[in-house]
Nucleic acid binder design. Structure first.
Length: 299
DNA sequence: CAAGCGTGGGC
DNA sequence: TGCCCAAGCTT
């Protein structure tokens, strides 16, 4: 366990300025309401994984209205979760949310667990989500590290443009050292740094003119050097299994009854073998179920 | 552990 | 236009 030291004066300024900025500029997201339940916050966190907040909000409203508690979702067929996931992306998250709801009913009296360890044990919950739910839903100031926080800290403290592809021990140490010691402030800090990364200290075209910690930012003082890491590999899309899986699922979501195998070829007419492979993968993942009449979302 | 997993908006 | 990226997780 390495240790990171941040100058006390710098730290004090970071805390004061970023918390103050947050109190003024935080977006009015529904799951930040004082009355939001742990379940509502849990849903928002999983839905927000790799997904812009603007796209999450309508689906989140639909879900909390339809399934206001873990019991409600646990009682629904898994396929309904996938159907109402819509086009949010990474639909395995819908399945895992459904499994998580059933785990909450089975192991936690239908409640969102409060400890980091119990949260981490839920399907679809990794280090980030476990820490975020502990902090935001339960007021337990775990060290939250997401892509926004990594970027803000690597710039403000380390003076580099972008964090490395994978989380380093050094980053964990810096994030831990950056947390305010006060419990309330620590929880606010988690949300505030994320928000600063999302709105101001963005990956491309950061709005440094609006930054509350411009004067003490190490990256700024270094003259905003460009990223020195290896070029990032973009994800292929056209013609990939991902694209075809997406189309198959979209068709199944938009069709109330099972879809015949032949009809599924319409999503990728140039290659029925690829459709076969993707279908097998979707069945393997539990996102699709073979039935007599063809294929449908799982029961 | 590197690769796979959706989707759509912004530049 | 094409590329980059967005509150990651799993195997």
């Amino acid at each position: 366990m390495s240790e990171a030291r941040i100058d006390d004066r710098v730290l004090g300024t970071l805390h004061a300025r970023i918390l103050d900025w947050f109190s003024e500029h935080a977006r009015d997201l529904p799951w930040r309401s004082a009355t939001a339940s742990a379940w509502e916050i849990f849903l928002s966190e999983v839905m927000s994984q790799q997904t812009p907040v603007a796209r999450v909000e309508p689906i989140w409203r639909e879900w909390i209205s339809r399934w206001p508690t873990p019991f409600a979702l646990a009682d629904a067929p898994a396929g309904e979760a996938v159907r109402h996931w819509g086009r949010l992306g990474y639909p395995r998250r819908a399945l895992r949310l459904h499994e998580a709801a059933r785990a909450m009913v089975a192991r936690h009296d239908g409640q969102v667990p409060t400890s980091y360890e119990d949260l981490l044990a839920l399907p679809g919950v990794g280090e980030y989500t476990a820490a975020a739910v502990a902090s935001f839903a339960h007021g337990d100031p775990q060290v939250v590290i997401d892509t926004n926080i990594r970027r803000v800290l690597v710039r403000a403290v380390e003076g580099r443009a972008l964090p490395a592809p994978s989380l380093t021990a050094r980053e964990r140490a810096v994030a831990a050292a950056a947390m305010p010691s006060d419990r309330e402030q620590a929880n606010a800090w988690n949300a505030a740094v994320m928000e600063l990364g999302a709105l101001v200290c963005t990956a491309r075209a950061p709005r440094c003119g609006d930054c509350p910690v411009l004067e003490i930012c190490a990256w700024q003082r270094a003259g905003c050097p460009p990223d020195d890491g290896p070029a990032r590999r973009g994800q292929a899309w056209h013609g990939t299994d991902r694209q075809v899986r997406g189309r198959i699922l979209q068709l199944l979501r938009d069709t109330p009854s099972p879809v015949a195998r032949d009809h599924l070829d319409t999503v990728w007419p140039q290659d029925p073998v690829k459709v076969d492979r993707c279908l097998a993968g979707l069945v393997e993942d539990g996102l699709v179920e073979p039935v007599e009449a063809g294929y449908s979302l799982p029961a």
